[in-house]
Design a protein around this nucleic acid. Sequence first.
DNA 1: GATGAATGAGCCTTCATTCAT
DNA 2: TATGAATGAAGGCTCATTCAT
Lengths: 205, 205, 205, 205
Amino acid sequence: MTRTGKTKKEVVLEFRTTGILDAARRVFAAKGFHDATIDDVADTAGIAKGTVYLYYPSKQELYWAALRAGIVTMVEEAAREMSQASTVADKVHAFIASKINYFEARKDFFKVYFAEFGNALTHPAEMQRQFKQLYLHQARVLAKVIAEGVRRKELRPLRAESAALAIADLTRGIVVQRLVGWSKAPAEDDIQFVFDLIWKGLAHR
Amino acid sequence: MTRTGKTKKEVVLEFRTTGILDAARRVFAAKGFHDATIDDVADTAGIAKGTVYLYYPSKQELYWAALRAGIVTMVEEAAREMSQASTVADKVHAFIASKINYFEARKDFFKVYFAEFGNALTHPAEMQRQFKQLYLHQARVLAKVIAEGVRRKELRPLRAESAALAIADLTRGIVVQRLVGWSKAPAEDDIQFVFDLIWKGLAHR
Amino acid sequence: MTRTGKTKKEVVLEFRTTGILDAARRVFAAKGFHDATIDDVADTAGIAKGTVYLYYPSKQELYWAALRAGIVTMVEEAAREMSQASTVADKVHAFIASKINYFEARKDFFKVYFAEFGNALTHPAEMQRQFKQLYLHQARVLAKVIAEGVRRKELRPLRAESAALAIADLTRGIVVQRLVGWSKAPAEDDIQFVFDLIWKGLAHR
Amino acid sequence: MTRTGKTKKEVVLEFRTTGILDAARRVFAAKGFHDATIDDVADTAGIAKGTVYLYYPSKQELYWAALRAGIVTMVEEAAREMSQASTVADKVHAFIASKINYFEARKDFFKVYFAEFGNALTHPAEMQRQFKQLYLHQARVLAKVIAEGVRRKELRPLRAESAALAIADLTRGIVVQRLVGWSKAPAEDDIQFVFDLIWKGLAHR
DNA sequence: GATGAATGAGCCTTCATTCAT
DNA sequence: TATGAATGAAGGCTCATTCAT
């Protein structure tokens, strides 16, 4: 008894979409947006060039779709893991761990994500609302946690939003270090390092 | 009486070089590497397209030269200001202040610098030795300070190199916030915020 | 009781053929041959793209079929109306009136027809025998009438074939004027104008 | 003593412009707008594809430039020759002769001109103001002559504008006949035929 | 040195046509 | 028969780079 709930059309659509997005992620990660060609993506996906255009109307849209797909699940995952933690410390730890682990498993996506970061300043208009919203959303969730911690005196009084973004920066930075090979420590250690650093600061007590 | 010791040839060379680099920085900042054209740069510099090629062999080299010029003075400035500070805390503070102030005064350059950061992962080969060296150099100077502080028990025991890179990440992050307008605080306040955060951490004592 | 003598197959064939041809005429009229797509035609006809190919082997053939269909009935109509007139003058008048009225009622078709006229010189090979034959056929019918009129001294001695083509040109020209709005006169008046002009010439007696 | 009054730049500009326009006319005449490629034009002109774009911003603009160049001189020539004739009959004759002779010497251009005619109805917006103006201008000059003739009772009373357009249609028609080989008569004879037909009409006196 | 006209490789995108279902 | 997803050839246009003046 087929209870997939999906029509065959939907299955094909998802199959293609997934394949193309997957190929796009890999190609964009390897070459960057401009040096990647639709032919590269098509070849990688094992389909013809024109087929890509049946699913995405332009190279730019394909890029955004690939980016969005990764960000959405990243944000979801981080939110989920944070919500499962109870203390402020655990939530901050969960945020850091979630992102490092996510990118550890999706290095290709991280490259695309990180590159888009670099472009954000140059082409702010293109980093459309949706991405900014998505990005700010997770920062805001973290900021709330921090604000709550401050209120409860678990944290020092500080600008919650800026602190949240700082944590995201630190986390991203350590992922880069892992990717370029400057950090060969187990992910667990790096997670602990980042958490420790941001939690206790540099200073000796 | 200062005798520059420069021949006329050298003066012209520097004049052109400066003008082209200046134009390049502005154009690359505004459009990004790929969307910028050599014609844009030439027009901005007020010279002919061919002239650019008399001083830089390719668009890529021009880009790197513009990037390098900015990084070199940034690193020099940071090193100088750190050397003038005496305590570990002051040196860390000097590093942060130096970079925030430098970029505050050179927003165009920061955009180019930041964008290249995004590309670094995608094109590691192109982020040539020199940039990596330059970048790592300043991190290493900071790392030494941190290592020294750890040895003297002024800082908690931690991975000095990673901590140094983390400080650089945090600093860069706050510059971005300032650029996109998420932080409207005076530079002084942001400098203090970053220093404070990294020095004391989040946790309440 | 009329027994059409048509099998169901033939009925379907005609139904599809008519629908496609109808859509083709409208689409080609609106966009021209090159800018029209098979998808446009299929959408307009309310069928799938592939279905068009079940009835016409190529876009070019479809175009010709649409053109031919219109020309055939146009020629038939002109021939019929001319045959019902008795005098030379009436026959010439019938020719003019028939064409102006025909196009008046089928503006879409006229656009396709007129556009093909422009292409005829550029792609003479494509203006296949059939169209040339069709086109020349009606001209020849008219030429015979003129030749007959000349023989009977009802008309001045002149090259009958050229005169026939000239009448066709004049008629086509007035249809264009009506279409672009340069002539807002009732069709009757324009028919009279063309007939009058070609019959009496410019000169005052 | 060089008194060309042209700078070298202007000479080069004109040389290229002429060469490209010439090639464009030939290519568009041979293949039609859509089937002609910029590469075709460049090859015919003996230059590289990119060079075409240094002088014309798009294929469409190049086409219009080629069309305009021909129409302008055609209209000028017709106007000049008409102005040199004194009687109404002579002016009408001059108009017809001028156009037939012009196209006789520029068959390539006529094909482009005639094809554009076919497109005019389908893409009225593209048959920009300038062409319509140019085309109507010559018709209006002729219309004035006719109106004047009507006033002086040299011509029968008739709609001058429509008559002028009719003469243009007849003339264009005979050029087509000559081009496709349906008329092998000397140009002089065809000119006389058209003039005679339009002047006296079909009817025997 | 300085110029800018010329070059031509390269790529996104369209769409007629095919064919498995 | 009907469908529409898939194909891939083709072409307009850009722009880094060259080189004659």
